[in-house]
Design a protein around this nucleic acid. Sequence first.
DNA 1: GCTGTCAAAGTTTTT
DNA 2: CTTTGACAGC
Length: 673
Amino acid sequence: MAVLDPKLNDKQREAVLYLDGPALVLAGAGSGKTRVITQKIAYLLQECHYDAQRVLALTFTNKAAREMRERLSSVLNRGQMKGLFVGTFHSLGLRFLRQEAEHAGLKPRFSIMDAHDSFAVVQDLLHSTDRGRIFTAQQQISLWKNALLDPDRAAAHVKTTAQEEALRIFYSYEATLRAYQAVDFDDLVRLPAMLMRDDEAIAARWQQQVHYLLVDEYQDTNVCQYEWVRQLVQPRAQFTVVGDDDQAIYAWRGATVENLQRLKEDFPELRLIKLEQNYRSVQRILQAANQVIKNNPVIFGKSLWSDLGYGQEIHIEDCPNERAEAEWVCFELMQERTMRQARWRDFAVLYRSNHQARVLEQFLRQYRIPYVLTGGQSFFAKAEIRDVLAYLRLLANTDDDPAFIRALTHPRKGVGEVTLQRLGVFASGQDSSLWEALPSFLLSTELPTVQREALEGFRNFILRMLGEVECRGEQAASFLHRLVSAIEYEHYLFDRYDERPAQARWQNVLDLIEWLQRKAVEDDLSVLEIVQHVSLVSLLENNEGDEEPDAVQLSTLHAAKGLEFPHVFLVGVEEGLLPHLGREDEELPEDERPALLVKRIEEERRLMYVGITRAQRTLRLSWCQRRRQGREDVVRERSRFVDEMFVQEEGQKEPEPAKTPDDYLAELKSLFD
DNA sequence: GCTGTCAAAGTTTTT
DNA sequence: CTTTGACAGC
């Protein structure tokens, strides 16, 4: 068998070859899970002659999908991979809804509302500017949707006044999206799941397409995603899900580890395969990880082991403040790189929340250490990008009121709050979108000349663009350039911002055009067809051709899942940050609070576990005694997880470590101290 | 009525 | 540093 990697261990091999029914692969950190999935896909296609179009692999992040495709392309040739779907739940959902739009009550060119957009919708419905309130309501609605609850069902779960408020606008939120001919991120999974559940013909059509399904990071699925998976694999029940309950870190967005148990109930013949050999980390690191995770309740017992040397001591640095911490990281990086003759890319600095990256960046720049920031704010969240995209969204779907408003007001055209308000009232009286209502609004309403002309001009401009927008391929770029120059966007940017920021923003717009153009040529799509994808992707992740620069990786713990690095810094290991314990729900009944707190801590502990297990050879932790929070310095304590790491159990003695190169290096290093 | 200026605030994690 | 909201000037 040419295809099968001889390096697979027995368990991995079993996971790859098992095709007699559904399989759950419990893959501990670093146990070669990605290899198993890619090998299995290769095996299905090459040896079992599955039609590539009938094999689907689902991931949670674009990054994971990309990585899997890359790994696959080293085993399979282009032809073999043709038609194979490797992508996120959301991108499959988009594909599904495109095809079934009609059945979902959507036109083919429906819009996708990202978090920003739906925030604005909620803000509108709440008649509030209190960001906290809006955020809470939006999040709550999202949780309900992910749990497959409609407003009626959700009502039974309401406990706090915040939830009451969310429920109040839940109906109208849904109605508003439908009126815009738009779906939000949650709908991309929820609507397919519901359509398949409720419509036999649709279900049959898709089930026919799925002869084998693989799901990565299964522990992070939510109720919707599970329901959809369950529908997709009927009636064959030919699938493999891979996951690790100790790495479930997305409960806050509706993921439930219970999906692991449900799987066993729904598919009693489920084959359980545990991968327990870790190929990533030295024993000392693995041991620390195990010590920490031991404090969580066990679902499936796993005991990870590795036969890679014992490793060097895990260092804990306590720093006076976050600037000192960042500086310490820089010193260590410079020193270690020289000592070990390592590359920058062998190092990662991991942290709990994005804002921690700020100080780090500042110091890394100061010391001229190259770095790359993974995750963080999406390229597509930038104001200038959203402005340009608003035009494209409006051209794709003229019912998209948020896009209409944004396009009309960025850049400003002399139409402001009041006129917009009047148009809005007029449109809702007619039960139509702003665009649709515009002509009769202009006919029937008294307006100052400036506003009237501005609206007419805008309408004519959009009409003209609608005539040209169908261009595809090569023409895309010239169309886009015409668009941005017609709205004088460059001028607008340089008017609004200082020279340098304006230049940067304009460059972003040019990058966007180039990106759209490339997409248009590669996939032979019209610009409008690409617009839907845009909110699901981030530009950074699409530089597939670019080779990674040699740079230190900065990443949140969440974004680091699935990655590994020879040397890891885990910074900000403090109470309040890791574990992060946001505000308490003041309103929750007294008796429910402690249980919730425990759950939260457990998830934070898994996050710590994920962080520790990213490290292959060395791990360094740091924490700050004081940290600037907002405008005040606050005193911090070392994280409880640090204590958990080093607790020695009664009677357990330090294992006799075999010396590794790292140990020798450490000794050598101590001579210099 | 619209728009630009100024001050204040700041989402834990992501599709 | 960036984005948002309030306010004053055109």
